[in-house]
Every structure is written in structure tokens, then in C-alpha cells.
């Protein structure tokens, strides 16, 4: 069943001024319930603008956005409670922390939902546990934490609202490789456990290859393709032409292919590469060791 849908969505910045620019151009797409969808595109391809339409932060210049089949701007007014049902984690979300304690910051979203105190407490504790935030840290000021910890607190603040759809804008930006893996692991675990629909904006094909089920590729404000990950990577030539990096491992394998060492074309994670290489070596092993 489709949960989010756009119909001919167009958004123009600074309409009627000399700075007028079409950021999203006639995009129609349907996102099914559940699973992780990666949204990739180079800088300025309109991905951040696109996602701000999903929770009604931006109003389309033309076209419609549907949530569960209903227009979110019916009668020109935003669907009530939409922002609690479609969560959006901005880029560098740690810059939005403001409360005195980590606990109160995570409780800000659920508090805005006017939930009873007990329910808020339950949600905060549950989300904190998921992110490995212990009770000692909950009582600390968010500004005493390290960068990676702040990031996790900020993401927890959105997740505690338990939205049906949760959108992340570059959730791993500026983190070290370990921090990146941790963030993606938590997102993946959470998505699989709750069946929540996840959208991740990224410009890293590498990360998306590892976590996403489907990919939306944006180019100059228009939709380039929306398909399962392996299908998207079969267009890797066109994708690199757009200025996006195909995963290193995919590039290595296409080079090997040029050297006439033939592997399956669709290698885009290190794990599948290991498998392919061991298979190849054992096959070669049958012909005598080298």
C-alpha cells in the first residue's frame, strides 16, 4: 500500500524575483509502506527540497502530496497532526538541541503531541535505550555530549514521536566511519523492528547500497529513477555522469571486467564482493593453484 505519493510536484524558490529557481520539477512518485528508500542526488539536485514537502514544511508551487491517499494540503490547510506522523530529521540535527537535559530534549516532540506524562516517559526511555543512551546521560545537558552522542540524541528526539514515516537528511554527515555505521545500524534495526517507512537522503552511493532497499535518484530537480537498488546500479554509467560516485567496490569490479576477469555486474557492497571473489578463487582452484 502506498503511504506517500507526489503528483506532478513542482517547487519554485523566490517566485517572481530575479533569483527565481525551480528546485523540484514535476516529480511524481509513490513510496510503499515499510522498507528503506534512499534518495540520492548531487548537491542542489532538489532532494532536500523534495523531502520538506512530505511533512508539509513546504507547500508545493503546483502538484499534490498525498499521505495515505489523502491530499495533505486539502482546502489549503495542512493535515492536522501530519508532522507527528511524518518525522523529519534535518541535516546536523544536533544544532536544534535546546533543553536543559537530554531527557527533556527527547521529550519535546512527544510533549508537543500533548501525550500524557506517563506515555511521554515511556517513549523517551524506550527510544533512549535503542540509541544506547543510559539514564546517567539522560540527566546531562545535551551540550556536554560528544558530537556523535548529540547526533543520536537529536535523532531520538524525532523517533520518540513514533512517526509512521521517518525521513533522514544526511544522518551520517560529518561523523567518522564508526559513527556512520552506528547511525545506519540503528536506523535499519528500528525500521525492521517497527515496520516504519524510512527515507534517507544521501549523496553517498556507498552507504545507500548497504542499507537501502530502493533508490530514488534525483538529477537537476527531476526524478531520474525510482527502483530497487540493484536496478539503479545497473545504470551506474549514467549515475556517474551525473556527478555521483558509484561505490568503490563497483568501480573495482568494472575495471576487473575490462581485464576480462568476469564477475556478476551487480557488485555494490563489500560483502557480496567477498563472496564473488571466494567463489571465483575456488573455481580457479579446481583448475590448479596459481
Amino acid at each position: 500500500m502506498s503511504i506517500l505519493q507526489t503528483e506532478n510536484l513542482t517547487y519554485v524558490y523566490g517566485k517572481g524575483t530575479p533569483f527565481e529557481r525551480t528546485a523540484v520539477d514535476n516529480v511524481s512518485l509513490t513510496i510503499e509502506k515499510g522498507g528503506i528508500t534512499g534518495i540520492i542526488g548531487h548537491t542542489g539536485s532538489g532532494k532536500s527540497t523534495l523531502i520538506q514537502h512530505f511533512n508539509g514544511l513546504l507547500k508545493p508551487s503546483s502538484g499534490r502530496v498525498l499521505f495515505n491517499g489523502e491530499d495533505i494540503w486539502e482546502n489549503g490547510k495542512i493535515m492536522p497532526g501530519l508532522r507527528f506522523r511524518v518525522g523529519l530529521v534535518f541535516q546536523y540535527p544536533e544544532y536544534q538541541l535546546f533543553e536543559e537535559t537530554v531527557y527533556r530534549d527527547i521529550a519535546f516532540g512527544p510533549g508537543n503531541m500533548k501525550l500524557p506524562e506517563k506515555e511521554i516517559r515511556e517513549r523517551v526511555l524506550e527510544t533512549a535505550a535503542l540509541f544506547g543512551i543510559d539514564s546517567a546521560m539522560l540527566e546531562k545537558s545535551p551540550f556536554e555530549l560528544s558530537g556523535g552522542q548529540k547526533r543520536r540524541v537529536a535523532i531520538a528526539g524525532v523517533m520518540a514521536m513514533r512517526p509512521e514515516v521517518i525521513i533522514f537528511d544526511e544522518p551520517a554527515a560529518g561523523l567518522d566511519p564508526r559513527g556512520r555505521r552506528e547511525v545506519f545500524d540503528i536506523i535499519e534495526k528500528y525500521c525492521r523492528k517497527t515496520g516504519c517507512t524510512v527515507l534517507i537522503v544521501s549523496h553517498s552511493m556507498e552507504d545507500m547500497a548497504a542499507v537501502a532497499d530502493r533508490l530514488i535518484v534525483m538529477n537537476h530537480g527531476s526524478l531520474f529513477c525510482h527502483c530497487p537498488v540493484n536496478e539503479a546500479f545497473s545504470k551506474s554509467g549514467e549515475i556517474s555522469a551525473m556527478g555521483l560516485d558509484v561505490p568503490q567496490i563497483t568501480r573495482v569490479f568494472s575495471m576487473l571486467k575490462k581485464e576480462n576477469i568476469i564477475f556478476d555486474d551487480e557488485v555494490y557492497t563489500v560483502d557480496s564482493a567477498v563472496k564473488q571473489i571466494t567463489d571465483y578463487l575456488s573455481r580457479k582452484g579446481g583448475e590448479g593453484r596459481c
Binding site: 520538506q52 511533512n55 514544511l57 508532522r83 507527528f84 518525522g87 523529519l88 530529521v89 534535518f90 540535527p93 544544532y95 536544534q96 538541541l97 535546546f98 519535546f108 516532540g109 508537543n112 503531541m113 528526539g157 524525532v158 514521536m161
Partner: peptide, 29 residues
């Protein structure tokens, strides 16, 4: 402002006191 709106902050409705309080999540960051 966008980030706090995404967490359900409401800057347009409520009494004057509530709206003044709603500014804190913007001013502190």
C-alpha cells in the same frame, strides 16, 4: 525554525505567553 516545526513546535497559535515560550527552542540553538 523548520527543524523545531518538524518536531511539532507551534509558533502561530496559542496565547501570547505560549507564543513567547515557543521562541526558546529557536533562540537557544
Amino acid at each position: 525554525i523548520s527543524a523545531q516545526k518538524a518536531r511539532g513546535a507551534d509558533f502561530e497559535h496559542g496565547s501570547l505567553r505560549e507564543r513567547a515560550k515557543a521562541v526558546i527552542p529557536i533562540l537557544v540553538p
